[in-house]
Design a binder for these strands. Structure first.
Lengths: 337, 337
DNA sequence: CGTATCGTTGAATAGCTATGCAGGGGCGTA
DNA sequence: TACGCCCCTGCATAGCTATTCAACGATACG
């Protein structure tokens, strides 16, 4: 055990280098490198064994950094999520981490809501020579996208409008909005309301499809309340809606959290029944939508497909830079259908 | 614009080096480095300006890798979470990402349930010269901890038993278990049940404190049902318990997800009332515990404190390698108190 | 005017691995 | 024996930045 200089606080113990292993094993550094290289390198059995033994003794682990320095490829993908409050994001994260790990790519996590923050972060990611970015924020910034592009970092955005050369993968929000309209109309709803999210691509597409189908079926424009994306906001929006005296008998909500908040308001604060008095449709199919207290009719976003699309778009660079993933209605207990 | 060799698919556009900037600005590479170094380096105003202009033209971003190569410190912390299903983990993740970002540390995300997987991952993290690991798995592996230690990578574990030189930060699970017993006993419960999680430090500490206090207060051992950690498992466990004919009037659940599942079983499947027929206490205080349909009495884990403790323990390396964070009862509507 | 000092800049180097190139030895074949 | 070939190993190098040391000019002071 040789003495090493004192480390700054929090420093890792200095790692053995391949040169040190080589010295101990009585071979050259190249040979050590070959032993640890993935390809079936040409190393004789006895030498290989000696190297392995020396490596074990020194606790040697190959260092990826010099390789990155030469190739410029770090094998690291940044995943940007816009707030963890929504289980939708965490489920997406779960799927993506699994897929990236299969491809032996590392995940750098970036959590941000504000744009300023993201601006700094672009610089930070460049410093580490990130190979690409998968962005699953609720609200995307065109400015940041362009900045990444100018830095030469490819980006895939989920449920986002296309900016520059950005690749996108999206749920077919518009089609689902249409189906939501069908469900409520076919279920016999006469006075329909829409609980909207803040401005985002997903939100506006869902609303567009919903409005279009309602119009096609001869209904007038539904009442619209701004709810945001959270349970509390959904609850407040429903209270506002029902307090104002309007009594809708059908509600389409921008996502499940909003829908669940609205349901609780309808039932607890107003003593009304779902689906008896008001039918409710959500979006995302987060686990809570299936909980017995809710049994929410909603749309299942195929997270597995969204995640796979993101990774393929980023890594394989297929010809078509945009993927649309269908999503399916999950009929449960909050609608008549 | 000089020609560069073709890139492999998915490669980032090659980044300009400080040497290239230096050439364009007509200065030395050292000078460019000084302009971009944080400390107020001694560079004259006109030179600085010329360098900045050249850098902007080439879209230059400093490369962190050579520095890492020399110092051995990557500025990257790995955060290991054991499954995203529990909002507890995601909330922890949110807090930790914020704190690490403040300290200008990057986050490498590792999601794993299985140990085998983790074993590979230790090697992977060494390759990137990770500065440290924050582990928030439900179930920790002593083997992995030792392997990390032998690799010289410091580790902080949350709600885990101490292994080797590992640093730990934990909620005071045992004390909280005692308070849970008080709440149920003081609330008048006569037949108390415990819905247990799978083997983990948090689980066993909560149970230990709970049992000890019940004994101190002259109650006999509560009925114990194994539930796991999820909503579905909690639901199933409660169904099992109530179907078996035993009719507890108080329940302490290893976490909120289990408690919410149990509540839905009690109410929907058996038509019983909470807290009328059965009082329920959970653990974690995830957002859903406050939802109007549940209003679950539970213990708030101070995630902010747990996260801060983790980061400080890892980065500042204080004398005491273990931190215990108190947690507080949040009385809501599922108990009489 | 001589010297010390300071501010600014350049040259050289360390940090570690993968890889191309060359050399050495062994073996088979003519 | 001579030659060619293959297998294995070592040598040298690129990749980029921060930092140390030296050098240079200018300024200030005695």
């Amino acid at each position: 055990m040789s003495r090493t200089p004192p480390n700054p606080p929090g420093a890792t113990r200095p790692q053995a280098s391949s040169t040190a292993v080589a010295r101990l094993a009585g071979v050259s550094q190249s040979t050590v490198s070959r032993v640890f290289s993935a390809g079936a390198a040409a190393v004789s059995a006895p030498v290989r064994e000696r190297v392995m033994k020396a490596a074990a003794e020194l606790n040697y682990r190959p260092n990826a950094l010099p390789g990155i320095l030469q190739t410029g490829r770090s094998g690291i993908i940044a995943v940007v999520v816009g707030g963890f409050y929504n289980p939708f994001f965490t489920e997406f994260l779960r799927c993506v981490t699994g897929l990236l790990r299969e491809r032996r790519l590392e995940i750098m996590l970036v959590d941000t809501a504000s744009d300023d923050n993201l601006n700094d972060i672009v610089g930070e990611l460049s410093r580490y020579r990130i190979d690409g970015v998968i962005s699953a924020m609720a609200i995307h910034s065109a400015k940041v996208a362009r900045k990444l592009e100018s830095a030469g970092i490819p980006i895939v955005a989920v449920n986002s409008k296309r900016v520059g050369n950005m690749r996108t993968v999206s749920t077919d929000n518009r089609a689902a909005g249409g189906v939501a309209a069908d469900v409520l109309v076919d279920g016999g709803c006469k006075r329909i309301a829409y609980l909207a999210g803040r401005d985002s691509q997903a939100q506006s597409e869902r609303e567009r499809g919903f409005l279009k189908r309602l119009e096609e079926r001869g209904r007038r424009k539904p009442e619209r309340v701004l709810a945001g994306f959270s349970y509390e906001e959904g609850h407040a929006a429903a209270v506002e809606l029902l307090s104002a005296g309007s009594r809708p008998d059908g509600m389409f909500c921008v996502n499940d959290l909003v829908a669940l908040g609205a349901m609780d308001a309808i039932r607890q604060a107003f003593g009304l029944s779902v689906p008896g008095d008001i039918q409710v449709v959500g979006f995302d199919d987060i686990p809570m939508a299936g909980w017995r207290a809710y049994e929410l009719t909603t749309f299942h976003q195929d997270m597995e497909a969204l995640a796979r699309g993101s990774v393929e778009l980023l890594v394989d660079e297929p010809a078509n830079p945009r993927i649309t993933v269908p999503c399916r209605l999950v009929p449960r207990g909050t609608t008549r259908l």
